[in-house]
């Protein structure tokens, strides 16, 4: 089974069927990663280009490992970007790479819409590995996979997403994908970290972390990117942590089986207390493991592979 999309630019318009196909396929790829020889020939002779204009260790590594476990040749290209580096260079870079016949391009960039822009200028499939504050679809897919592992089904689950919603591509991709999968989402943040009309994305809004956790099935803590903030959205980290850091105390009224996630890297003691991060509810390392599996599935499917579960 193939996906209905040529590129994975976001989850906003990704049909439920595609999400299910990717998650199902990822299960068998995860199994591969537990074998002594962690390699399948599926993408032998294919070239995967990791085009990372924004510093990233874990996402880039995850894509690199995913490609290599499928026997693809993986090329990493990183370049720093700032607002002064114009996107014209971005289009040029993509075209130059395209001329070397890659089979898939993985793009991360600090500008929203960068992956979509590149996809309009190249023939090969493009995977968005994070564009500005817009989307980070593979993160949402690996989050859903992790959640489904633990809950069996996603339908009807209640998620709480906490932190810098305004600047978070992880939040947007998760909101879309979770809504598509029949989950309900509440976002929790001070109003200064909530973008305009966020409720129109089909989420509830709360300013109170503890009360919003009462009937939640999963809470996702977002990284506070202090370097990205302008105009100081909160007085200081201490006050932010008092209100929004996930602590055992704030989990007092939560359900026994509430799960805790974080896309990483974690600011310990700011978004999440150390004991919670390392506690039994935490799925943070499962998320990382599943990231490789989801990205393997995605590359495989975008390059026309069959869904393993079809057999």
């Amino acid at each position: 089974m193939r996906l209905s999309v040529k590129n994975l630019l976001g989850t906003r318009d990704l049909p439920r069927k595609d999400i299910e196909t990717i998650l199902n396929s990822a299960l068998s790829f995860r199994e591969l990663s537990t074998r002594p020889i962690k390699k399948a020939p599926a993408l032998r002779g294919k070239t995967v280009v990791n085009l990372f204009f924004e510093p990233s260790t874990r996402t880039r590594t995850s894509f690199e490992i995913a490609g290599k476990r499928l026997s693809a040749d993986v090329i990493n290209i990183s370049g720093s970007t700032s607002s002064t580096v114009k996107g014209e260079n971005l289009i040029d870079s993509a075209r130059v790479l395209e001329a070397m016949s890659p089979d898939i391009m993985i793009v991360r960039h600090s500008s929203s819409g960068a992956a979509e822009l590149i996809s309009k200028h190249v023939q090969c499939p493009v995977i968005n590995a994070g564009d500005g504050s817009h989307e980070h679809p593979t993160q949402a897919l690996l989050d859903l996979m992790t959640l489904r592992d633990h809950k069996g089904s996603l339908e009807g689950l209640k998620a709480v997403i906490v932190g810098d919603i305004t600047n978070s591509r992880v939040a947007r991709s998760n909101i879309y994908a979770m809504n598509t999968m029949g989950m309900s989402v509440t976002v929790v943040a001070p109003p200064t970290l909530l973008p305009a009309k966020i409720e129109q994305m089909g989420v509830s809004v709360s300013y109170n972390l503890q009360s919003s956790l009462k009937d939640a099935d999963v809470v996702m803590m977002l990284r506070i990117q202090t370097e990205r903030q302008d105009g100081s959205p909160f007085p200081n980290l201490r006050e932010y942590a008092n209100l929004f850091c996930l602590t055992s105390e704030k989990l007092r009224d939560a359900k026994e089986d509430l799960l805790v996630m974080h896309p990483g890297p974690v600011n310990r003691g700011v978004e999440i207390a150390m004991d919670v991060m390392e506690g039994s509810r935490s799925l943070i390392l499962n998320q990382v493991t599943n990231g490789v599996a989801v990205r393997m599935a995605l590359m495989y499917l975008l390059l026309g592979g069959k869904d393993e579960t079809d057999h």
């Binding site: 819409g113 817009h134 989307e135 973008p195 305009a196 129109q200």
Partner: peptide
Amino acid sequence: EGFVATELGLKGMP
């Protein structure tokens, strides 16, 4: 600044 900017992840001008 508004819903479209929020969806596109672009900083708004109110």
